[in-house]
Design a protein around this nucleic acid. Sequence first.
DNA 1: GCTTGACGGTCTCCAATGTAGACCAGGTCT
DNA 2: AGACCTGGTCTACATTGGAGACCGTCAAGC
Lengths: 149, 149
Amino acid sequence: MATPQQIADPRPETPDTCPGGDQGFDIFAAVCPSRDVFAELADKWSLLLLLSLHSCGEQRFSELQRAVGGVSRKMLTQSLRALERDGLVLRTVHPETPPRVVYGLLPLGRTLAERIAPLGDWVESYAGQVVAARERFDRAHDGACAPQD
Amino acid sequence: MATPQQIADPRPETPDTCPGGDQGFDIFAAVCPSRDVFAELADKWSLLLLLSLHSCGEQRFSELQRAVGGVSRKMLTQSLRALERDGLVLRTVHPETPPRVVYGLLPLGRTLAERIAPLGDWVESYAGQVVAARERFDRAHDGACAPQD
DNA sequence: GCTTGACGGTCTCCAATGTAGACCAGGTCT
DNA sequence: AGACCTGGTCTACATTGGAGACCGTCAAGC
């Protein structure tokens, strides 16, 4: 991955645009296509949907809504469309009656989901420490402030 | 990691709240503390900052602003404060003149950054395929629509 | 027969969030 | 003396997200 600057480089580069070729994608550059992709994926609902489809396999619209607690139908539709557009998720309409709509990971999406899973695991493992850190921080900055006054 | 339902479970659970104990964090539950943590981290700027600090080591406020293209000072401050509150990042003010403010990863933050890096790598590796998929999708849905009319 | 509910959405409104850009205090360079 | 850098904060403004209504098709219940 491109780094925003070389390690110990005293003068960081300003990555405004990425080289532009098929190579040289840089998520740190403000206007690189890879930044758009990153920004779309770096989202609560997109990540949770990918995670859910990864661990549960194909799921229907309403199953996903139940699986991902708190997602609205609007955001569910919107995020799934975006993932479908990106070639990560496949939307299949089974022409039954009533029609069944099923979402599943495409191979590209699966490779991504495999990289997201450790992130989900981390959060569930360390959320306790994060919450504790927050309480410490809030106590230090709200409660016991003005130590010398 | 908890899964929103067991694989091939025909009746997915509705994870409204997580068990509540120190165990049983579930990012799929709408009101679990781990969901708050996840939602805060599942953000463009937070992830990019963690990534930048991971690959470049300690960085100053203005270095980070240059490194992470397109971030506003407001979001930079806000995201760094949140990461500091979460115990992931350490903010150090060197009492020189002018004072130097340096941000660096704490051990907990480093373990997280290590899990985010593969995600960044994925995006830079596959952004081309994603962009191509988008073009295909858009052509199929905007350009050549109404195939039978 | 009529209502109710599930399904897979779409639409509209309103609140929250992100962005752009001004402003600020202290110090430095020219 | 005036412009600039640093590390921010503050204020508008635009975009985004969430809540909830609406929709047509089907099945079950009363």
